[in-house]
Design a protein around this nucleic acid. Structure first.
Lengths: 83, 83
DNA sequence: CAGTAATTATCCCGTTCGGGATTAATTCCG
DNA sequence: CGGAATTAATCCCGAACGGGATAATTACTG
C-alpha cells in the first residue's frame, strides 16, 4: 500500500496483510461511492482522523467504529478459515 | 448469543450482528481446539480479560489484537459485500 | 502552472482499552 | 451432588484511541 501522502512519518508496512486488505477495501469502496474522507466520516458517525487512519491501516482501531464505516459503504466483516 | 456466565451485568444484545458472529466464531473455534480462554490468551499474546470480552462481543476491542487471536485459531478477517 | 480540494500529521485532552490480579458466578464431570 | 475448572465482573492504572482543529503536503484540474 503506497503511502503517497506521507510527509515524514514512519509507517510500518509489515504489520498484517489483513489490516492492509481492509484498509485498501475501505478506500476503494469510498472512491467507488465518490465520497471524500470527510463525507464518509460524517455518514458513519466518526471523524476525519478515524477515516484517515483506518485507510492507512492503523492497527489499533476500534472494531465497532470500523463496522459502522463498512456499513455505510455496503460492506461487512466476515470471519473465514485462513487460507 | 446466550450469556451463560452472566452475573448481574447488563449486556446489550442489539449492537451488531457482525460483532456477535465474530464473537461466536472465536468461541466455537477455541472449543474446537480444546483451549481455555487463558490458554488462548497466552498463545495470542493477549490477556484473559481481552479474550473474555472478545467472546462476549465487546464492541470497542482493538482490531489488531483480534486479528492475532484469529490467527492462533486458524481464522482470518475478510471484508465482503453486505448481503 | 496556479489555485483549490483532498489527505496526512500533529496537537490537546477527555475517554476508554486492556494487562493482571482478585473475587464471584457458572460449568463441568466423576 | 460436590469440588475443581472455567468464565465473567471488577479494580487500578498506564497506554492509547479518536474528535476536532490546525498546518503541511499532495492530488487534481482548468
Amino acid at each position: 500500500m503506497a503511502n503517497k501522502f506521507s510527509r515524514s512519518g514512519i509507517k510500518d508496512e509489515s504489520y498484517s496483510e489483513e489490516l492492509g486488505a481492509i484498509a485498501s477495501a475501505v478506500r476503494a469502496a469510498r472512491r467507488r461511492h465518490h465520497l471524500t474522507q470527510a463525507q464518509l466520516a460524517g455518514l458513519s458517525g466518526t471523524g476525519l482522523r478515524f477515516i484517515s487512519e483506518l485507510e492507512r491501516g492503523k492497527p489499533s482501531i476500534s472494531l465497532h467504529k470500523m463496522i459502522s464505516v463498512l456499513a455505510v459503504l455496503g460492506l461487512q466483516l466476515r470471519v473465514v478459515e485462513a487460507s
